[in-house]
Amino acid sequence: MSELAQTSLEARMQAARKGQWRRLPLIDDPRWRWGIAVGVVVYVVLAFASVDVNWARVAEGAGRAVNFLSAFMQPDFVSRQKDIVAGLLESLTMTLTSTVLGVLLAIPVGLGAARNISPLPVYLVCRAIIAVSRTFQEIIIAILFVVMFGFGPLAGMITLAFATIGFMAKLLAEDIEDLDWRQVEAVRATGASWWQTMNHAVQPQVMPRLIGLSVYRLDINFRESAVIGIVGAGGIGATLNTSLSRYEYDTSAAILLIIIAIVLLCEYSSSHVRRWTQ
């Protein structure tokens, strides 16, 4: 303990003996403490100043808010039933195929992105793929793919598969990087080839989490499939977008409720699957 800290402790003990005690400040240096506090205040002021609100427009929108809330009380599943069912079907198929493809493609990328089993050039390429796929929102990727592949669920599927690659490969690579290396060495010591090592030492350690993550990603992909329709990549999002722009709030409410229900279902079953694989 430095001398300064020692004297300040003595001072605090003296004060405590007389009944004076304050909590230790979170940040020792008062300059930093005040600097950060002032910085936060300045930022908040500037940030709020840059938010300009058109109150007239808000007041006008309040009526719609009421409409929307009342629509939630009486959601309309019927009048656009065909659109809803078609959108839902598209979303679900997109979710499933994209997750399967994404996970399959993520496995080689993940192996390549694990520093401990792959050579540097492969590692860099795979990490770059992961970084690009994770940085951009699904919707941005969807825009590009819609331009390339045309409107419809195929673009959506490719988008989601691409996003899945980034997500799964990163987690898979992290898993492989901190797996139990002794087991790998034990298998290698038997004279196993690279493939045999993967199959007998790496796969058993990574598999349970891989399954759990895939189920989790399935859930995410469904949620995302509800949005990418906004830019024309098919799915329930397109139906939702249309209903909102037509001011058919009761249909929108119905769609939102369906989404919530399906997500709940997914979450419930995925927690079961994860418990079962562990």
């Binding site: 605090r12 003990m13 405590a16 009944g19 909590r23």
Partner: peptide, 26 residues
Amino acid sequence: LRRYPQDAVTEAFRLLERVGLPHAID
């Protein structure tokens, strides 16, 4: 806010001295 009355703090410190840990307050 950790603004305890003076007598509480005095007593707390006396007890810490009694159990032999006055240096550990912080």
